[in-house]
Nucleic acid binder design. Sequence first.
DNA 1: AATTAGCACTCAATGGGGTTGAGTGCTAAC
DNA 2: GTTAGCACTCAACCCCATTGAGTGCTAATT
Lengths: 340, 340
Amino acid sequence: MDERKKKVLLAIVKDFISTAEPVGSRTIARKYQLGVSPATIRNEMADLEEMGYIEQPHTSAGRIPSDSGYRYYVDCLMEKQTLGEAEKEYIRQRFSKKMREIQEVLNVSAQILSEMSNYTSLIMGPYQKRDRIKQVALLPMAIDKALLVAVSQSNLVSNYLLDIPPSLTEADLERIARVWNSRLKGMAVAEIGQEVLDDIYKELYAYRKVVQAILELLGGNEEQGYGHISLSGALNIFNQPEFKDLDKVRGILELLEDPEVIKGILADTPEEGLSIKIGGENRVEGINDCSVVTATYVVDGELMGHIGILGPTRMDYAKTVTLVETMAQQLRRVLAKLYE
Amino acid sequence: MDERKKKVLLAIVKDFISTAEPVGSRTIARKYQLGVSPATIRNEMADLEEMGYIEQPHTSAGRIPSDSGYRYYVDCLMEKQTLGEAEKEYIRQRFSKKMREIQEVLNVSAQILSEMSNYTSLIMGPYQKRDRIKQVALLPMAIDKALLVAVSQSNLVSNYLLDIPPSLTEADLERIARVWNSRLKGMAVAEIGQEVLDDIYKELYAYRKVVQAILELLGGNEEQGYGHISLSGALNIFNQPEFKDLDKVRGILELLEDPEVIKGILADTPEEGLSIKIGGENRVEGINDCSVVTATYVVDGELMGHIGILGPTRMDYAKTVTLVETMAQQLRRVLAKLYE
DNA sequence: AATTAGCACTCAATGGGGTTGAGTGCTAAC
DNA sequence: GTTAGCACTCAACCCCATTGAGTGCTAATT
């Protein structure tokens, strides 16, 4: 992979990203000054094709990058980009509105992402198990039902209907909540150790079962463990020329309706930080002609959720990566403030 | 409008609804035994066209019903239909799952509607102002913030962050909630009269402002006054041959993303009961080649929300009407049970 | 040995032209 | 009033020639 091959590949990727048309040797020679003739470029392209970085839709067409071509571009050729002042200002302005709950913050973030990228944005979180619980309350609802209200540090309020023994009085409920709050205030469910739990069980021996039920509800079962999902700009796929086919669009939109799929797309990798999945690298079936750029966001050093942008493999990776990184940072900042 | 014209119009509407192809005189003579020749039918069709009930996409094509054609069909020609036993069973089965909150009921209902109709279903409600409030609680959150938790008769739990004077203690909050509950339990916000309010103000004179704030939050401002929206089967428009155009599909899907639009579609008419809007009869711009069948659902004699089905003007009105009516009834039944 | 000009070749896309077939309106006969 | 007959219309389809962008190969040039 000599220097000139890199330049040719870079030219092909860049050109295809911006035009969506297969790019030919003449175009490269003309638009990107490599100082060589189209014939030479053709030779290079033949090599690149053999190496698997580019491919031809049909014999008499130009070349388009393959998944590995994009991968090489992303790993070795892409120049980092920074947001322009206007764009930064736009984000700042969108975040300037006072937001009380994390949910609102995430929804706005998803909107910003999709608007600025022109692709589809996905945000998942916060992970309940890791979200610190500020306060818990138990309200009597019926003779054998209570309402469990939990306020997390992110000001996310969750409600659960709780089955209780009919013998429990309002005072009992209050007592349970009081003890819970005094022992566990500010702890995430994931952090609750057996020790402190035993302590509570001792104090609330008669209500063991109720405490257990609360713990279970707050911990969330695995199915809903990924928290809420914000999705924005799903209809942006209509902008992409590669999705001018009704069935393709439909396929993607149907996938995006399923939270499990979103979860799969965003949490494909367990690692923290930025991740780029190109085309077939995605494990989720049906988005193999899409790329996904994801990142994680963190509060208090705890992984709180994932954000991501889904677009065609022909996406503007440089810009998208910058956007996702910036937004992950912004989220860290805004959420930290929200958490006081 | 003699008997035979009606028969011809009926044949055209029925045929077009099921085939989506313009229907010609020969087809009618063959498929629908009117005992006359195509030529005669052509004459009748010429009349019907003059009367505005049918139109020709182009000279050498058959006829398709116009909006007024559908209107006449719906008003005068359509035979009422009842659901088959299998379909009833399906609904029963879907509703048999235990559901705790109205939200869940409405979501399931929307799914049933869209699945059985193959169109898009919309459900709006419950109207908070009309939903009776079972219980209210105030939890201290910060020095100048409290969490207002309201449980409605439909078991819908709403949370609001409330600004309070820093001087208020936890005991104060409890007292406010206690007084509120004792006076207003089981009342909808819309029902609260000045008299009982004055009563409360007297008792809680020091906390007037807080009580007022609570009232405002619960009443909801006009913007959010329509409650929650459940939407299902939006992607069903991809099934319709008249929407094989990307831009059309996109247009509709974009509209459906806007809750204000949904509100406009569903609450176009103030009347209760069934309503059918055909094509251009819709006041909402952009759905003028769609028809909407809506109905209202009622709990305790109070209008609680709207349900509706959105499909192409070429929709199966007989079936859709039956579905919407049935679902409105079922909702009444299921919700009444939920409300105990 | 690398580069390039030249050339034959491929193939999607475009557009014209003929054919088909479903459907109509009109007229004259029944 | 109904119908058969007929000329006419027009979208849809297929066929085919043309175009043009692009390639690979080869031989000449540097």
